[in-house]
Every structure is written in C-alpha cells, then in structure tokens.
Amino acid sequence: MAKKGSFEVKVGLAEMLKGGVIMDVMNADQAKISEDAGAVAVMALERIPSEIRKHGGISRASDPQMIKDIQSSVSIPVMAKVRIGHFAEAQILEALEVDFVDESEVLTPADEHNHIWKHDFKVPFVCGCRNLGEALRRVGEGAAMIRTKGEAGSGNIVEAVRHMRQVQSDIKKLTVMNQDELMAVAKDMGAPFTLVEQVAKLGKLPVPNFAAGGIATPADASLMMQLGAETVFVGSGIFASEDPAPRAKAIVDSVAYYKDAAKLVEISTGLKSAMKGLDMSEIPEGERLQERGW
C-alpha cells in the first residue's frame, strides 16, 4: 500500500529543492518570471516582506484564489505561508495541495506560545530559526526543512549570516561533546534530547538547512551557500529590485556555481540596482520579524 505524507516523503521533497532558489511571488506573472529564470519553487504571498514592512497591519495567509492562479501557471512546487501557530490556515493550504507550508515569522503570529504540530499534516513544513535549539524544536514538531530567519524584507544579509553561523557553530560544539554533556546542552537550548543526540552523531541537521532573510545579490547567495546553506530563499530581493528577471536568473546561476568566483563576476555583471535595503539600526527592535517564534 502506498504510504503518503510520512516524514521521509516530506524530507524527500526538501532534498529535491537543494542547490536551488525559492522565490517569493505575489501573482501568477511573477511566478512565471521565477520559473523561467530557473527557480526550483515559488512562495506565494500577497505582499513580499518589504511591502509588509511598509504597510503594517495584520499579515495573514494568502487568498486561496491567488494561490490557485499561481499553481495553474507554473509546474514547479508552490509553497505558501501561514501564521505561526495558525493550524487552520495550514489545513486550508493542505486542502489546496500546496507543496510546502512555511510557518513564518513574516506573517503576524496567531499563537504566542505554540507552533503548529506539523506531524499531523501530510504536507511538509519549513520553519525559520536563529539557532540550533529553535531549529530542533521545529524539527521535533515535524518540520521537514529548516531555514535561517535572517531579517525578512531588509535586503540586509547580516542577520541571515548571524543565524547560519550560529546554527553551524552550535552543531560543531555538539560533535565534540561527550554523551554525558548532551543532556545539559539539550536542557540549555530547549531542544529534544533525541534530536540533540542525532545532530551530535551526524554533524548536521536531520533535515535540509536552507538560508532566508535578506538575500539580494548573487554574492549574497554565494555567501550563504559557502556558509553551509543547501538552498536559498529570496524574498523581496528579486521583485523589489529594479529589473527582476535578470536578477532572478543571476541568483539561480550563483547558487549552482557558488564556489566559482570567476563565474560569479560574469553572473553579477550588468544587473540593475538591487533593492535598497535597511540597516538593522533603522528597524526598531519591536519591528524585527526574527523575534517572532518560540
């Protein structure tokens, strides 16, 4: 009997997305531009994070009609976001047959204590993290893919770098610890002990580890890949830039050839302006999206 929706099948799709670029899109036209540029998947949302920042208000899961339009316009996987803890939004997206659900800090949280129990779903989930403890809590809840949070909509790579370095350094520390130290670490980082043990053994996360939050240039994508990301999400970086299609294509190329600096020169040459971006000091602490999630 065919077994659908198991954890292995969920992680399987995340494996297929490796070495690729997942692009935020707001309509079917942008989805097509992304697919033509070589995106491995698109993330459907009503406003890209930089727009959410500008407009304020409550951000919710997207209108099903908009998601359906995008699903019918492209053949690559279509992802969509739900509010943290909003399992009813997730149930609706699952019924819509989106390929991946992002339980995302970019939308306004619906629950300030609990995330969604993702094991209950057949559709796979991706969640953001800033450190290993947060990553393993999400995996414990059933996430099949982890991404850095970075600072969405900022066009500033500094937070994604901070979070990726933090996760990698947390992992490295585990690999040299003795068995009797792991319980204390699990307690300190608030992570399930069995997963801490598994990471100590594997030397990497038990699910694919992607980068997100502030990627705006081919060099940003290369940087994140060299720091250990297995794929990159680009949110506002493409459609808030001056000329999205060539930039989208350039970022796809930069992920495939992330180690080849000579090729990156070619890839990065002649692109029009990147999104303007924000320094972290321009984003008041209360408005930092990365603080959302528990």
Binding site: A2, K3, V9, S75, E97, V98, D99, K122
Partner: peptide, 14 residues
C-alpha cells in the same frame, strides 16, 4: 509526463 502522480501530498513510498 511530469508530476504525473500529482502534487507533493500525493508523493509516496511503496
């Protein structure tokens, strides 16, 4: 035919 079994919710092991 690509994606002939449908979207990810129809991915499976057997």
């Amino acid at each position: 035919d690509r994606n002939a079994y449908g979207r990810q919710v129809n991915s499976f092991r057997d």
